[in-house]
Design a protein around this nucleic acid. Structure first.
Length: 810
RNA sequence: GCGGACGUGGUGGAAUUGGUAGACACGCCAGACUUAGGAUCUGGUGCCGCAAGGUGUGGAGGUUCAAGUCCUCUCGUCCGCACCA
């Protein structure tokens, strides 16, 4: 009988479909596992990255299912987004049709891989029912003050014609299309992620050891919490007069209040209101004013590349503790977007201030003892009035306290994190359910009118927002007063949808229709026990999803703090050392691979070639190798006699090769436990199975073969399910798909191999009886290496039972 | 610049607590079977050497009876952050 993957795979896929084999049980009594691979964007076809992602998730889901655990392993579609509109422009297809056609096609592709997804919970984020609940959440967040609308400078992508969140700008470029991002003043909706900043940071500790350290570090840096002192620099009287009394002073923030006595100047961002006012009043010479305006128009990224540059503003601020006057400058390195856009400058203890002071010949005053300037380490204060002699930490607290007592400042925490701008000026997204009423202002849509859906008859040109230019869609009435009003035409960032989809899956589909997230279901299934996805989402999606989970908790929808208990970040799939991409022409098509070798080979290779967290280099001949193993497994199984139960074997009566084969089989079984539950290094498990099959091949005992197949097919089922179900069905009626306990007797060896080293160099191999004493082992060891002991004295003997003997000689 | 990860045969990778480095696989070499083979099977394969033996985990030191594993320095690759006061 020949191994024909296509026949076997079609047969079992049909069976699983008909039997609804992978639906979770609705009861909440059994132990559960929620295994989730990040859902795909329906771009048209699946790629190898998907295959890897879902092969890992499927292996875990199938493993737990065999252990009798209630498993939720869902799939869905992150189906709103720009590419659908780009396709509409290019191919004259409606975004909705394009999207749902893609979903249908990709669903087939995934089915062909034999993935054990729950079909009943599949959905797309563009489904109106999903939008309905999402809009409801948004309105509730608004009512709670966690969503607001404001006009401010935003990141605008000229190519995508839309606003981007801070997280979606990478080195000044759009995360999706890589074109340059400009700053533009625009109104938009913001989610107050900042009010969760502390919790988001604090809860990273709970994920320690369960998420990759790298991701935790990235999130922590992104949140960027810093603690310090905020205080107001009052302007001198003359300076106030110069500004026409419009400003009393300006606020600054510092994390080093201990260096406050070292302040020799203050610096404002070029777009600071005081700078603007001075320019408007003509208080600065024309040349300088021009230059400052030019800097203010540069992006932060551009500015970062420039040398430090600044100009004296001709005004003075009063030091809050010494009363001395310090000059106020504007400088290109002061960020308008952080803190209050102004800083106190301590050149002696800050590298940037030092560089600037040196360039413009500003005074430098040391207030911390220590090495060469600029000295940025903490230390003992000098020349700091009543605080001299204190250590930095102590002084920080004392100075904050003093400033608070004087009413001149306060201890404050600042974050690098900004609030999440969710407005997008695009068509193919979830509408933001608000209405602009000339009388009542911003009004949420009534709940019974949800979801606010997209109009179907739109023209998509890539220019402007199609909802804005639609003739009638935005015309509506105010839900409050009934007057004529306009609908909001912004749609939501698609990251909103992926921030809570884990709750959609966790809810029974029938309950979902009626009530949205079900608290009891969420309590049972959440959090996701194992989440699997690419490292590229380390900040964006994973931070948003953590935030949204907490926000929904506080709206009362569930009581989970963190959505993903464990996270595995898979490595990329490469070919010729580069990421697969159409433009490089190095794409390996999963469909073609499945057609040629079958899904099992594709899955086996992708899990065997590298541990899941590492990059995986594609190798066609290694795929052949994986296929060869499956053919061999099939061939040997066909030659094995079927049986109904695990055969009983008298281990003591076996030949050496037979014992060895059993040992390898049960070693593989033990490895399986570890790999499926803790380590996820499927490559080592597959290697162990290969070793076991090789060892079985070296003996002919029928019962040993039966037992070997019984165990190996069980172990391999999560990885190569079709062939495993087929063979197990024929040989054992699938009775072997349960928990198999390792048989300890096979690990009791007649003799144990040990290495003998002399002066640390391996010289010989010996075989000793299992219970041999140290003396006996040494005797055998010495007899094995006469050549190396001749004429020498043994001065030290080290015996590590079962491992090696090391003789130190002189 | 700062932070992190990694560096093992021709290749992908094993080595879980310091204890026989290179499991497993790819490739390659030789042979068997065959009309043929890019099928299958057998054997070999870190490097140098006919061998004995030597040598070997990016490099240099160190700790230890023993180091891929621990420590110090250094080189390289990749990733993240990048004036955040």
């Amino acid at each position: 009988m020949k191994y024909i993957p296509s026949d076997i795979e079609a047969k079992w896929q049909k069976y699983w479909d008909e039997q609804k084999s992978f639906e979770p049980e609705s009861g909440h009594e059994k132990p559960k596992k929620y295994i989730l691979s990040m859902f795909p964007y329906p771009s048209g076809r699946i790629h190898m990255g998907h295959v890897r992602n879902y092969a890992i998730g499927d292996a875990l889901a199938r493993y737990w299912r065999k252990r009798g655990v209630n498993v939720l392993h869902p799939i869905g579609w992150d189906s709103f987004g720009m590419p659908a509109e780009n396709a509409a422009i290019k191919h004259k297809l409606h975004p909705k049709k394009w999207t749902y056609d893609n979903i249908a096609y990709m669903r087939k592709e995934l089915s062909a891989l034999g993935l054990s997804f729950s079909r009943s919970r599949e959905f797309a984020t563009s489904d109106p029912l999903y939008t309905r609940w999402e809009q409801k959440f948004l309105i509730e967040l608004y009512e709670k003050g966690l969503l607001y609308r404001e006009s401010t400078k935003v990141n605008w992508c000229e190519s995508c014609h839309t606003v981007l969140a801070n997280e979606q700008v990478e080195e000044g470029r759009c995360w999706r299309c890589d074109s340059e991002v400009i700053q533009k003043e625009m109104p938009g909706y913001y989610l107050d992620i900042l009010s969760y900043a502390d919790e988001l940071l604090e809860d990273l500790k709970k994920l320690e050891g369960k998420w990759p350290q790298q991701v935790l570090t990235m999130q922590s840096n992104w949140i960027g919490r810093s603690q310090g002192l905020a205080f107001t620099f009052e302007l001198s009287e003359a300076s106030r007069a110069k500004l026409g009394g419009a400003f009393e002073g300006f606020e600054v923030f510092t994390t080093r209040p201990d260096t406050i006595f070292g302040v020799t100047y203050a610096a404002l961002a070029p777009e600071h209101p005081i700078v603007k006012a001075l320019i408007e009043k003509g208080a600065l010479d024309e040349e300088t004013a021009k230059r400052i305006t030019a800097i203010a128009n540069m992006s932060e990224v551009e500015r970062a590349k420039q040398e430090k540059e600044g100009y004296p503003l001709g005004i003075e601020a009063i030091h809050p503790l010494t009363g001395q006057k310090v000059p106020v400058w504007t400088a290109n390195f002061v960020l308008a977007s952080y803190g209050s856009g102004a800083v106190m400058a301590v050149p002696a203890h800050d590298e940037r201030d030092y560089e600037f002071a040196t360039k413009y010949d500003l005074p430098i005053k040391r207030v911390i003892e220590g090495g060469d300037l600029p000295y940025t380490e903490p230390g003992v204060l000098v020349d700091s009035g009543e605080f001299s002699g204190m250590k930095s930490e102590e002084a920080k607290a004392a100075i904050i306290q003093k400033m608070e007592a004087l009413g001149k400042g306060e201890g404050r925490v600042n974050y690098r994190l900004r609030n999440w701008g969710i407005s997008r000026q695009r068509y193919w997204g979830a509408p933001i359910p608000f209405i602009h009423c000339p009388e009542c202002g911003l009004v949420p849509e009534k709940e019974e009118n949800l979801p606010v859906t997209l109009p179907e008859d739109v023209e998509i040109t890539g220019e402007g927002n199609p909802l804005e230019s639609h003739p009638t869609w935005k015309e509506t009435v105010c839900p409050k007063c009934g007057a004529k009003a306009k609908r909001e035409t912004d749609t939501m960032d698609t990251f909103v949808q992926s921030s809570w989809y884990q709750f959609r899956y966790a809810t029974d589909p029938v309950k979902w229709e009626r009530t949205g997230i079900d608290k009891e279901d969420a309590r049972y299934w959440m959090p996701v026990d194992q989440y699997i996805g690419g490292i590229e989402h380390a900040i964006l999606h994973l931070l948003y999803a953590r935030f949204f989970t907490k926000a929904l908790r506080d709206l009362g929808y569930h009581d989970i703090d963190e959505p993903f208990a464990r996270l595995l970040t898979q490595g990329m799939v490469l070919k010729d050392g580069a990421k697969m991409s159409k433009s490089k022409g190095n794409v390996v098509d999963p469909d073609a691979l499945v057609a040629k070798y079958g899904a099992d080979t594709a899955r086996l290779f992708i899990l065997f070639a590298a541990p899941p967290t590492q990059e995986l280099e594609w190798n066609d001949s290694a795929v052949e190798g994986a296929h060869r193993f499956l053919r061999k497994l099939y061939d040997r199984a066909v030659k094995t006699t079927p049986c109904e139960a695990l055969p009983t074997i008298d281990h003591g009566a076996l030949e050496k090769n037979e014992k060895e084969a059993r040992k390898k089989v049960y070693e593989a079984l033990k490895k399986g436990e570890e790999v499926y539950t803790e380590r996820f290094t499927f490559n080592t498990l597959i290697a162990a199975c290969m070793e076991a099959l090789n060892a079985l091949d070296k003996q002919k005992n029928e019962a040993v073969w039966q037992e070997g197949m019984w165990v190996l097919l069980n172990l391999l089922e999560p990885i190569v399910p079709h062939i495993a179900w087929e063979l197990s069905d024929r040989l054992f009626g699938r009775e072997n798909f349960g928990i198999i306990e390792p048989k300890e007797e096979v690990f009791v060896a007649d003799t144990i191999g040990m290495g003998v080293s002399v002066n640390g160099k391996p010289r010989a191999q010996i075989e000793v009886a299992p219970g041999a004493s140290k003396e006996e082992i040494l005797k055998i060891a010495k007899a094995a290496v006469p050549k190396w002991l001749e004429g020498k004295t043994v001065i030290k003997e080290i015996v590590v039972p079962g491992k090696l003997v090391n003789l130190v000689v002189k």
